[in-house]
Design a protein around this nucleic acid. Sequence first.
DNA 1: CTGGTGTGTCAACAAGTGTTGGCCTACAGT
DNA 2: ACTGTAGGCCAACACTTGTTGACACACCAG
Lengths: 189, 189
Amino acid sequence: MNDAQPLRRSDGTRAAILRAARARFAADGYQKATIRAIAAAADIDPSMVMRYYGSKERLFAAAVDVDLRLPDIGAVPKERLGAALVTHFLHRWEDDPSDDALLTLLRSAATDEAAAERLRGIFAAQIVPLAQALSPDPSVAGERAALVAAQMLGLAFTRHILRLPPVVALSPEAVVARIGPTIQRYLTE
Amino acid sequence: MNDAQPLRRSDGTRAAILRAARARFAADGYQKATIRAIAAAADIDPSMVMRYYGSKERLFAAAVDVDLRLPDIGAVPKERLGAALVTHFLHRWEDDPSDDALLTLLRSAATDEAAAERLRGIFAAQIVPLAQALSPDPSVAGERAALVAAQMLGLAFTRHILRLPPVVALSPEAVVARIGPTIQRYLTE
DNA sequence: CTGGTGTGTCAACAAGTGTTGGCCTACAGT
DNA sequence: ACTGTAGGCCAACACTTGTTGACACACCAG
């Protein structure tokens, strides 16, 4: 499973392509982002993208490798879980502009079925288990995870994709104060 | 301001184009939906679309003419507002498949700035005033409208665009029971 | 019947897409 | 120093896109 690190001379180019791809996919979504635009941003020829990543689809897959890095659920007291989760997502979205894979997926999932499937996978692998740790019954855990996802993705969509002015205007503290209790209720009530 | 109803012979074709356009835009979003696909669905030539609607952009504008038809805020008691709003939106999305303009806009807004602007306009014209009727201070009304929009659009996105299985599985009654109180709190607390 | 206008089809344009193959160039191992 | 190979660029492919203009048919007023 290890890559034996061949340390090719082209690793710099590969990284530049991936960086540019993340930026373009995040800004435009899967369809609107073109191989040519990505190549131009990385300052190389479009054919290099194909050489190193095979196809636009595989490049996209490489660009969005999401790990929500959810905080350890045991580390926070149960009554603070809602606020902790909201705070965590806010930090992921706002303080870490280099890794906007989740927003890229969100933007692309609206029109690209592959991106949607990927987002569903992340939900199933990372949100559902979190809910399951709190309520063992899988059907109630699924429902709770669903409610949490609906609220959090709605926040991400209106704040970072749609950029609804009043949602953008909310301070992080206000977001945590208003939406934290909602998540708390969805998770534990 | 009236159209003097010339009652042209081509009105049927115009309507067929608009119907097909709504279906394609709703299913694929602005970019992925092509004039040719719309014309094929309407069983006419692509050039007719241009003749009657001028351009793809103008056709899109004609296809998404959204009126949320929000219920009269005075008609329901204040403590039932949340449930009433959630019920209303559920009906708009699920029982009226002919008019999915809002979902079309939601899907397209992720990658199309014009659609996003249009959605922001609907929000400002229809959600904000509703919040303002409950709390006169415009800044708190804006915040409340923002929270409502984030929750409701999140529900629409996860249920109808992303189709997250646990969100789809929620019965309408469960949605109202779980999310109604959230909206209620966002609006009035 | 005749002319004109509105309705519709066909073919094509120009631009942009993902993708491919050929051709240089420069570095690595011998 | 020589040579094979990997890195990189150029030009082109096949295709799709929105859009346009020329042409054919049908209807209706005179």
